[in-house]
Write a protein that binds this DNA or RNA. Sequence first.
DNA 1: ATTCGGCCAGAACGAATGTTCCGAACAAAC
DNA 2: GTTTGTTCGGAACATTCGTTCTGGCCGAAT
Lengths: 165, 165
Amino acid sequence: MRALSQRQEAMLRFIRQYLSERGRPPTVREIGMAVGISSTSVVDYNLRILERDGHLRRERELSRGIELPGRGAPTIPVLGRIAAGQPIEAVEDPTDTVEVPQRFVDGGYYALRVKGKSMIEDHIDDGDVVVVKPQDDVDDGDIAVALIVEEGSPEGEATLKRIYR
Amino acid sequence: MRALSQRQEAMLRFIRQYLSERGRPPTVREIGMAVGISSTSVVDYNLRILERDGHLRRERELSRGIELPGRGAPTIPVLGRIAAGQPIEAVEDPTDTVEVPQRFVDGGYYALRVKGKSMIEDHIDDGDVVVVKPQDDVDDGDIAVALIVEEGSPEGEATLKRIYR
DNA sequence: ATTCGGCCAGAACGAATGTTCCGAACAAAC
DNA sequence: GTTTGTTCGGAACATTCGTTCTGGCCGAAT
């Protein structure tokens, strides 16, 4: 681990800026163009150093295969589907996730995809994803996922409802 | 503008998910693989439809040249450099920007890159970017950008200081 | 002087990737 | 049935792009 050269600092700055402006990583040649390097081998050479020192990660043989650590919003999994009066469906796609603000990651929150337009008055449309916070007590007017545990139905049933009592 | 087919919906979902997980857009072939399309021409065909209907943008002849609208943190420009006891330098790179939380975009905030380690006790290091909120009155102990307007110096001078009085 | 390591340029190779062409299946309308 | 528009699959092509090879320059160490 050594100090970064001026060129390597410029490369890191450019990658950061390119990423936030364009939403995709730059290519080796784009980096070289930006920091005044004519040869792709030199860019590759310095990228290897930056990777060795932990300033970025690379996927080999992949176009634009540069990743900066600590980027991207955190995600939580979408555990199933929910609709008013319908049971929660099994998870269809285990890789289905949604981006959420940081405060949702460690609070036991989970997400469900809404099926149907029964909550359309609350701007919850078909296909929307609701982030659910488990809590025992609800206040009057809260929107809640009411879970009904039944015999023979290991998953139970759940509906999305506005609670009044 | 027509309703999206099931295939196009699946493509959009996959692109969104890939983007948030990997931090880069997928390739045409990766999209096809994910939604069960064997031919790249079919992916291209549907991507053109999605682009025509405004669901995404594409850069032609560019690998991973897919952009989703409304992505990425908002940015504000870095207007110059600042250092204790030194004048603000002219803007070197008009495309130099920093990502900021949403609340900074419309409050008149602007950003300056810090030169030197004179504020290192406040964890403001050389190369850091400070986001400045213009305000007339400062409280004791605030960190302020003090601007000194001079004759013959149209830009004025500014220093970064902690204010006590 | 010689050697060594760090840094660089130019060129070429091969894989990845976007684009295009051709033909076909299908449904709706006439 | 024929036509028309939409969607699709297979293949080929051209460009982009990551990697590698060869060699050169330069300062420090031997």
